[in-house]
Amino acid sequence: MTVLVLSWENAHLHGEAWISHHRLRHQIFVGRQSWDVPTYNSLEYDQFDTPAARYLVWIDDNGQARGVARLLPTTRPYMIKSLWPELLQHSPPETETIWEATRFGCDRSLTPSTRRRVVAELICGCLEFGLANGISQYLGLMPVAVFNHVIMAAGCKVEIQAANFHMGRHDVAAGYIDVTLSSLLEVRLRAGIRQSVLHGSSGDVSQHGSNDGVSRRERAIVDNIAA
């Protein structure tokens, strides 16, 4: 059980993880939340699933996705800027230091304790990935309840934008999530996580000079700050 950083370039290295993450997205966002988004053969996808995206996928011992999050640099086309810029109190960002975070979810068939673990490790994984790749904030698009009762409750600092809209069963909003070492430490402390959650070498973003998901310097930091 681990958190993978998947992309179009490395998906073939991880068995069922890639396709099962699209199945899980269908289960969460179409089946459970009733979103009107593209689907095919019980796989959920959209126009922002591009080579620029990185996917944090929590996989079980059978290599099946049980938790997901999608990250996109705001220097490339992204959902909030393209579809809902009015959710922001200013112009949509276009900078390497802010990435969009969407499609955050967890398999509801898991036990409550396992769901809590999956969610906490996904959040830690997003923070670790951000620290390793020069990201200062995520611009999230999520149900307001997820911001309040999941992301903020886990220990992250979030600035929810005022505007929201109703999608499926939820009020959805945009919000800025700070990516800091102190946030990572707080999330780890609350969840009882004592080491890096990201798996191996699948998260490179070449323009930041890292050959794996967490640089040597950042891996040393994130592996020890909660020890």
Rank of each mutant, 00 (worst) to 15 (best):
M1C: 08
L4W: 08
L6C: 00
H12C: 09
I19V: 14
H21T: 12
R23K: 15
R23C: 10
Q27K: 15
Q27H: 14
I28H: 03
G31W: 05
Q33F: 13
S34C: 15
D36G: 10
V37A: 13
L43T: 11
L43Q: 13
E44H: 08
D46N: 01
Q47S: 13
T50R: 10
P51K: 08
V57P: 03
N62I: 03
N62R: 14
N62K: 15
Q64F: 11
R66V: 09
G67Y: 06
R70V: 09
L72H: 04
L72I: 15
L72A: 06
P73D: 01
R76C: 12
P77M: 06
L87T: 07
P92M: 06
E96M: 06
E100F: 03
E100V: 09
A101K: 00
R103V: 04
F104Y: 11
C106K: 05
D107R: 06
L110H: 02
P112D: 03
T114K: 14
T114C: 08
T114L: 14
R115Q: 15
R115T: 03
R117C: 08
V118A: 04
V119I: 15
V119C: 07
V119P: 04
A120C: 06
E121T: 11
L127H: 04
G130S: 08
S136F: 03
S136W: 08
Y138E: 02
N148W: 07
N148Y: 01
H149T: 10
H149I: 00
M152R: 15
G155M: 07
K157E: 10
K157A: 10
V158L: 07
A162P: 05
N164K: 13
F165W: 08
H170I: 03
D171G: 03
V172N: 05
A174I: 10
I177L: 09
I177N: 00
D178A: 13
V179W: 01
V179E: 00
S182D: 13
L184S: 02
E186K: 14
L189F: 12
A191T: 06
I193K: 02
R194D: 04
S196P: 05
L198A: 03
L198W: 07
L198Y: 10
L198P: 01
G200C: 10
G203H: 02
D204H: 10
D204Y: 01
S206F: 12
Q207L: 08
D212V: 12
E218P: 02
E218Y: 11
V222F: 06
V222E: 02
D223N: 15
A227Y: 12
